[in-house]
Design a protein around this nucleic acid. Structure first.
Length: 733
DNA sequence: CTAACGTACCCCAAGCCTTT
DNA sequence: AAAGGCTTGGGGTACGTTAG
């Protein structure tokens, strides 16, 4: 049986046990199903009692994507929004039942709503917000009387399930939306006398006839207010308490925003990935640096396909790859747009081109997803892309590697390594590049104080770019944000950090970035001209990306054609970095030649001179990149390494193959798996361990004998929880 | 204020395991 | 053997974040 089913570079051995999770407290529903039915009945009764008309034709008919979700309101909201709103309002309806406020429930009952419903009570809405937002088990006090709210004989306890300001905002939007659907509740925006008021008890005592004649109880300027009107969000009380509740959420719950890397941190990550030796790490670096150069969200990078690259727009001059071209359709892009991915000869360690070509050559990728699932790493045409969640755990790992403190945000805000991290880093790199270039073109050494007008100049420049008045900064076009303000937020952080680094004299070589090249191109015709007609064009822009990749590795980098690329990543990364940059690097060969002059020639046998091209294991000190700065490498996260085996095992067809994977999984494991856990990956270990123990215990690790015996005893499945030992041994207990 | 996406948790059902 | 518990995977709901 072959132990080579698993490629040695698929990942580090599975380490570390997971954190035991605290058992979540089970949430008790506010009201029972029976009480809900009771509420519906009472609300319907109230509708009849008030003489409100429920007609089939008048009801708004917009529904969400889930067909059973509650109908909401006006025609303008899209299905997804309706769904989102429906969830917030569903809970609110239950709350109204709980509070026995059936009048507020009328407009919330989507399948039985009259054409002229009264608005919801602002008091109930405020109490609902308090119930949702206040910390778990906190007693909800009434906002007017300040005494505990009691309903159905019990004081109301908060659940604290809404912890974000945005969630509270969605509730407000949902309320507003639903009120806008009806003339009676439309509010001032679309209704002349749209002020918000609730039903007056005195007016309601009048007979129907009296009401129709607009007879009033005497108060409110002679108008009859037997029915409430207006949009609840226009209630002054609601407005006041709404912002108070927002503030409460801000103070009591952590908010999150995306972090970004610094150039030095990117270098640390690059060095780690290059020296790790595994293809997986090389891939992770490609994802990161591509995302940082193309302003992409993580899932957008992971969606890139080999076919996304457009070879005819590649710019290759002689023996130099200037840029690659990639077409992308981002979240906000209406159509596919073309971007140039530039090599960075000045700081090759931050070049996206070199690792990418190396990666493609090493995987022998010819099509499909560029960054596939780990099980398809060596497929020529992967069909499953790398899972977003897995990549997030890798990012987390890198965040730890560079020592980033995510808890350091201001105002209780804490940073996350999430979807927009690469995109934000891209803005930072771009801004820094432009600033550094400015400084250098001014031929000044890096000054220690920043004139503040200089900072604002960049912003003005960027803003001008939007209106097409500047040729200096095309950054905003490259970043292609919809709104200027969001880009400014991203740029703001970059600018502040840059300023601080300069002031503290910390703009060392580690923080340097090469000149900024705009990447977005509209005039493809002209690009084609450049790609085809420049001097020394070698014609590789007429061939595919994989062909370019192998040309890059075997011709440009002069790697021996017999070399197994996937096993020599550290050295290849070093070579790729040294390309066009020889003077900085001292190759092993040059060192050997130098040594030769001083040492007796008989020391240099054939074997020794061949050493330079011998494959070397990762971590071997002779191969260590001279720039490596990290000595301590944190262990890989559990998720980043464990699921591979499970996937592989599931895919394996024969018992032999499955068993081989199981054995490998356990021999690579440093600690026994925890007995019980809800982590999917560990569950797999939990179930496979009996097989492993049996092979070791009963058969001394001889898998052939084990399989033979299983076959004799008619045991069909030798792995997993169904497995029973053919010898009925004790090892499996 | 709206749209879209991403994640964590809950519930459920089927089938195996352990206990009675 | 019945009862109850646990695993596992699927599907749905609720919540969070950010862009437009």
């Amino acid at each position: 049986m072959s132990a080579e089913i698993l490629h040695p570079n698929l990942g580090p051995p599975p380490p570390a046990k997971p954190q035991p999770k605290p058992k979540p407290k089970k949430r008790i529903p506010l009201i029972s199903k029976a009480e809900y039915q009771e509420g519906v009945k009472r609300t319907k009764a109230l509708i009849t009692e008030l003489g409100l008309k429920v007609s089939e034709t008048h009801r708004t008919t917009i529904v969400g994507q889930n067909q059973d979700s509650h109908q909401i309101a006006t025609v303008r909201a899209k299905a997804q929004t309706v769904d989102r709103y429906a969830k917030a309002l569903k809970d609110f309806l239950e709350f109204c039942f709980f509070m026995e406020d059936y009048e507020s429930a009328i407009i919330l009952m989507r399948d039985h709503c009259p054409e002229n419903p009264p608005p919801v009570s602002d008091d109930t809405a405020i109490l609902f917000l308090r119930y949702k937002v206040q910390l778990l088990d906190e007693t909800v006090l009434h906002h007017k009387s300040h005494v505990p709210v009691v309903s159905r004989g019990k004081p109301l306890k908060a659940v604290g399930s809404w912890t974000a300001v945005s969630t509270i905002g969605i509730f407000r939007s949902a309320l507003s939306q639903i009120h806008k659907a009806y003339d009676t509740t439309r509010g001032s925006s679309r209704h002349k006398n749209g002020s918000y008021f609730l039903a007056c008890k005195e007016c309601r005592k009048l007979t129907l006839e009296q009401r129709q004649n607009n007879k009033s109880c005497g108060a409110h300027n002679g108008h009859c207010q037997a029915f409430g009107e207006g949009n609840v969000i226009e209630s002054e009380t609601f407005g006041q308490h709404f912002s108070m509740i927002e503030k409460y959420a801000q103070q009591h719950y952590m908010s999150k925003s995306s972090a970004s890397f610094l150039p030095s941190q990117l270098r640390t990550i690059r060095d780690h990935c290059a020296n790790d030796g595994s293809l997986a790490k090389l891939m992770q670096w490609c994802v990161i640096i591509l995302g940082c150069r193309l302003y992409l969200r993580i899932d957008e990078v992971l969606s890139l396909e080999t076919e996304s690259f457009v070879p005819k727009y590649f710019v290759i001059k002689g023996k130099t790859v200037i840029s690659l071209c990639v077409k992308i359709k981002g979240k906000c892009d209406g159509q596919e747009r073309h971007f140039q991915v530039y090599d960075d000869p000045k700081y090759p360690e931050l070049s996206p081109v070199r690792p990418l070509l190396l990666y493609i050559a090493a995987t022998k990728r010819t099509g499909g997803f560029l960054f596939p699932k780990s099980t398809q790493m060596f497929d020529a045409n992967p069909t499953a892309k790398y899972y977003y969640g897995s990549f997030l755990t890798h990012i987390e790992f890198f965040v730890k590697l560079v020592g980033m403190d995510l808890q350091s945000g201001m105002d209780g805000e804490h940073l996350i390594a999430g979807t927009h991290m690469l995109r934000k880093t891209a803005f930072l790199l771009a801004y820094w590049a432009i600033k550094l270039e400015q400084l250098q073109s001014d031929k000044e050494s890096i000054p220690t104080s920043i004139p503040s007008h200089e900072e604002s100049a960049i912003f003005n420049d960027a803003a001008m770019k939007i209106s097409g008045q500047s040729t200096n900064v095309t950054l905003l076009a490259d970043g292609r944000h919809g709104s200027l303000s969001v880009q400014m937020t991203y740029l703001g952080d970059a600018a502040t950090l840059f300023g601080l680094f300069r002031q503290l004299n910390r703009l060392s070589t580690n923080e340097m970035v090469g000149p900024y090249f705009p990447i977005f191109i509209k005039q493809l015709g002209n690009l084609l001209h450049i790609a085809n007609n420049g001097s020394g064009t070698c014609g590789f822009n007429k061939k595919s990306l994989p062909e370019l990749a192998s040309w890059f590795v075997f011709d440009l980098m002069q790697v021996d054609s017999e070399t197994d690329l996937a096993r020599n990543i550290p050295e290849l990364c070093r070579k790729a970095k040294a390309l066009n940059h020889v003077e900085k690097e001292v190759s092993t060969e040059i060192l050997l030649n130098k040594l030769k002059k001083h040492l007796p020639p008989e020391l240099f046998t054939q074997a020794m001179t061949r050493m330079t091209s011998l494959p070397t294991k990762s971590g071997d000190t002779t191969m260590t990149d001279s720039d490596v700065t990290t000595n301590t490498i944190p262990p890989a996260t559990l998720q980043s390494s464990l699921p591979n085996y499970q996937e592989l095992c599931r895919k394996a067809k024969t018992n032999e193959a499955k068993l081989s994977i199981v054995i490998q999984a356990f021999t690579r494991m440093t600690k026994p798996p925890p007995k019980k856990t809800h982590l999917k990956a560990n569950r797999w270990y939990y179930h496979q361990i009996r097989t492993y123990r049996c092979v070791q215990g009963c058969f001394n690790g001889n898998t052939c004998e084990f399989l033979q015996k299983c076959k004799e005893k008619g045991i069909q499945n030798v792995t997993g929880r169904i497995f029973k030992c053919p010898n009925k041994c004790v090892h499996t207990k």
